[in-house]
Every structure is written in C-alpha cells, then in structure tokens.
Amino acid sequence: MAARAGGALRYLGIAVDEADLLPGALRLMRELRPHWDAERVKTKLFTDGITNKLMACYVDEAMADAVLVRVYGRKTELFVDRESELRNFQVLQAHGCAPSLYCSFQNGLCYEFMQGIALGPEHVQDPQMFRLIAQEMAKMHAIHANGSLPKPSLWHKLHKFLSIVKTELFTKVSNPSLHQDVPSLEVLEQEVAWVQEYLSQLGSPVVLCHNDLLCKNIIYNEAEGHVRFIDYEYTSYNYQAFDIGNHFNEFAGVKEVDYRLYPSKETQLQWLRHYLHAYKQLNQEDQGGGGGAVSDKELETLYVQVNKFSLASHLLWAFWALIQDKYSTIDFNFLRYAKLRFRQYFKAKPAVTTLHVSK
C-alpha cells in the first residue's frame, strides 16, 4: 500500500469508486483500523450531500468509533481548492472547531464522525439553537491563523465560477433550458462587477469563514449542548458579513427551497447580538481585555452589511449550481436550484440596496 506523509497528515494511495463506495471504503478501514474484524464492519451511506459522496464505517452499534469516508464529487476540483481545504481543516481542528482528520486518499478524506443530528430549516429558527450557532461562528471567525489577514476569497471565487460558466456552458452547445430563467452572460458579468464594487466598500472585516453553512453542515450534540460545523471545502478568509448572510439564505433550505423562511429582522437582530457579544469577547480575550458589550450602532451596521452580502451568496451558489448541473453525478436538480438563486438575487436586490445605517 502506498502511504506517505503529507505534512503531518497520513496519505493513502487508494481511490474510491464514486459509483460504488463500499470496496474502497473497506480498503481504507484495513489501513486505518487494522484491529477491526472486517466481517463486523458496518456502513451507513449519507444521502444529504450535494457535492460529495459520504459513508460512515463502524463496528460499534452506537457509532462511537465511526470513521467518515468522504469521496469528492466529479469535477469538484473546478471549484474546490483541495490543498486549501486540508490546511483549513487542520487549522480548525487545532482550535477545537473540527473533528479529527485521519487521512487523505486519492479522491477524498477520512475523518472522525461527529455524534449528533444534522440540522434542518426547522431547527435554525429556534432561539436556543441559533444562539449556539452564532457563538460557534464567532469562535471560528476569531481564529487568526495567518497573522496578517489575506484578501477575501469572494471576488476570486465569483470571477472563477463566472469564467467556468462562460467557457463551459455559454460558449458550447448545452441544455436548451439553460437560457430560460438564467440571465444572459452580459447581465451576469454586469452583476458580478456591480456586486464587487458595491459590497467591497461596506467595511466588513475579513475573517476565517466557513462559507457554506447550510443547515445540514451544522451538527447538534444534545448531550454536550453544543453545535459543530462540518465540511470545510469552501472555508477561507472572507468577509464576516458574507458568512452570516450566506447562512441566513440557507434558512430557506436546499432540497425544498422556501425564501419565506429567510429570517425576519427581529430574528436576525437577536442572532447578530449573540454573535457580536461572543466575537467581541473572544477578540478581547486575545488582547487581554474582557467584556463584550454590543452597541445598537454595531448591531445595525452588521445587520445592513449581512443583508447586502446575502446578494453575493445568491450569485455565487447560482453559478456553482450551473457548473454542478453540467458535471455532477449526484441526483439533484442543480439547474432548478440555480434558477431559484438567480430569481431570489434579483428579487432581493431592490430592497437590500435601500438599507443604510442611520447617522
């Protein structure tokens, strides 16, 4: 078996067939858990993912010892930087924000299974739950892994996705339904230019962001009373307000999307107050201070920034879904999802652009 050290992380030269995970997953377990009786290994396939294939392997009925095998989806290297994902996974693990990472293999990762339930849109509206989520996001945003903060990833990512859409979808013969309810290339280029100009002036801090905090990427452990975030493919330094606005968009769900579930202003202000209190406390602890009082001005400023940045989230995931529609083998209507995100972008834009922080 080819095995080498990739930094401190073990690498196994095994490829897992995306269409048939079991044989490759069991080969990985023979390397990672040689003491397991191969005849007793059980597996559970998770079907919620729309980017990758995911399987748990375990021998204990309670899944206390489970290892997750995540197999990268087809062509996901177009929009996921796998080296960056590994680095960020290890940074988050070092700060208590991620599970143990066991190894990488040719087309995926193996890591610790987190006990708990993956949340749904019905959970994230609950004040007790969203307090935990806001605090966990603050904990992640307070990590200063690089000392000096790099540029936000949002603009590079948006332009990269737009470029792929332009070269792979619009310049080649493709799905005729693509052009129904999907804006023209000229309009898309104009909107990307506008959103970059508009949002980059808002002064949102650049922090270490999850960037993909949909409900199923939040695991609630009732026994321990905490939430943890999973899936760090899009984790990078980015605008604070983008990460929060993106999460608020995800209140609408993914499989069945309903933007009436987008949080009300009252819910957002409660959420943001929890977040700011935790974020300020964590940053002040780093600087030897204390407290975490949140002023009304700070709250209003973040509220305005978050709702404006939610526009960029719609554009980004609409482009992503168009690319997935062309390449992914996962059973999900990506084209319909892209159209929903474009529609919501244009619907939300007029109201969002009228938001201003009062003098």
Rank of each mutant, 00 (worst) to 15 (best):
A2R: 14
A3R: 09
A8F: 04
L12T: 05
L22Q: 12
L22G: 05
G24P: 09
L26W: 04
R30L: 03
H35D: 13
W36F: 07
V41Y: 08
K42L: 10
K42S: 12
K44P: 03
L45R: 13
D48S: 11
D48Y: 09
G49W: 07
K53N: 09
L54P: 05
Y58T: 07
Y58E: 01
Y58P: 06
D60Y: 01
A64S: 15
D65Y: 06
V67Q: 03
R70K: 15
Y72M: 00
G73L: 10
G73H: 08
K75S: 14
K75W: 07
F79I: 15
E83M: 07
E83P: 00
S84I: 01
F89P: 13
F89H: 13
V91G: 04
P99A: 12
Q106V: 09
N107Y: 04
Q115G: 07
D126E: 15
Q128E: 12
L132Y: 06
E136A: 15
M137S: 10
I143D: 02
A145L: 00
K151V: 14
P152L: 04
L154H: 10
W155E: 14
S163N: 09
I164G: 01
L169D: 01
N175Q: 01
S177C: 00
L178F: 01
L185P: 03
Q190G: 12
A193M: 08
L199I: 08
S200C: 09
L202W: 05
V207K: 02
C209V: 13
D212M: 11
D212N: 12
C215N: 15
N217Y: 10
N217A: 09
F229L: 14
Y234Q: 08
Y237H: 05
N238T: 10
A241M: 05
D243N: 12
H247G: 09
F248L: 14
F251Y: 15
F251Q: 00
K255R: 13
D258I: 05
Y259T: 00
P263I: 07
K265S: 11
H274T: 05
L276E: 04
H277G: 00
N283C: 13
E285P: 05
D286K: 13
G292C: 01
G292W: 08
A293M: 08
D296E: 15
K297V: 13
E298M: 07
E300W: 09
F309R: 10
S310I: 09
A318S: 14
W320Q: 06
L322E: 00
K326S: 02
A338V: 01
A338C: 04
Y345G: 09
F346E: 08
P350R: 07
A351C: 03
A351W: 02
L355E: 11
K359S: 10
